[in-house]
């Protein structure tokens, strides 16, 4: 992926040298041309086209923002309810993610989802201990949410 970005920058610089014009618009045009070239020649690369991964990153960011807004409204609803109706608890969650980087992103996402907070990561890095605000429904629901999170992260890291 880094190699593709470097090549894309090289194409942009070659474009600027061809026009003898070192300005930001010329660089942008060159960069866009480079994206098109690399996209057309992507079957010669061992890895996927890097714009696809960039798109996955953007999707992950959108997911992050959406979850943050939903979760804080849920927490506020719990706070202003006259009687406290929460049933907190800690549950363990097995994850398929391997590298430290992926697990960090996953636990940050979990910290911002509706009513869950990562408390601890087991030493083998395969189990996350999560404190849930309302364990009854969350236990099923969060598995589903984490299915989408894990998939979104995997799309970024291994494609």
């Amino acid at each position: 992926m880094a190699l593709q970005i470097l090549l894309n920058l090289a194409i942009a610089f070659v474009w600027m040298f061809l026009y003898n014009d070192f300005s930001a618009p010329r660089f942008t045009v060159g960069y866009l041309l480079g994206i098109i070239c690399i996209g057309l020649l992507s079957r010669f690369w061992p890895h996927d086209f890097y714009m696809r991964r960039l798109w996955a990153v953007v999707k992950l960011l959108v997911l992050f923002t959406k979850e943050l807004i939903i979760s804080s409204f849920l927490v506020i609803m719990q706070i202003i309810r006259p009687r406290l109706a929460v049933r907190p608890g800690i549950f363990a969650l097995e994850t398929e993610l391997k590298s430290d980087w992926e697990i960090t992103v996953l636990s940050c996402l979990i910290c911002l989802t509706p009513g869950t907070l990562t408390l601890d990561v087991a030493r083998d890095g395969q189990t996350l201990y999560i404190h849930a605000m309302d364990i009854e429904d969350v236990n099923e629901l969060s598995k589903q949410i984490k299915g989408t999170f894990e998939r979104a992260i995997m799309e970024v890291t291994r494609s």
């Binding site: 979760s71 804080s72 927490v75 506020i76 706070i79 406290l84 907190p88 910290c111 009513g115 605000m133």
Partner: peptide
Amino acid sequence: LSAFGLIRLPDVYLRSHAATKSATL
């Protein structure tokens, strides 16, 4: 509201729910 939650919720973990999410937003 999240400051109110800090007063209202019963233990550390629930309070940190309020402190992390709502205060961030």
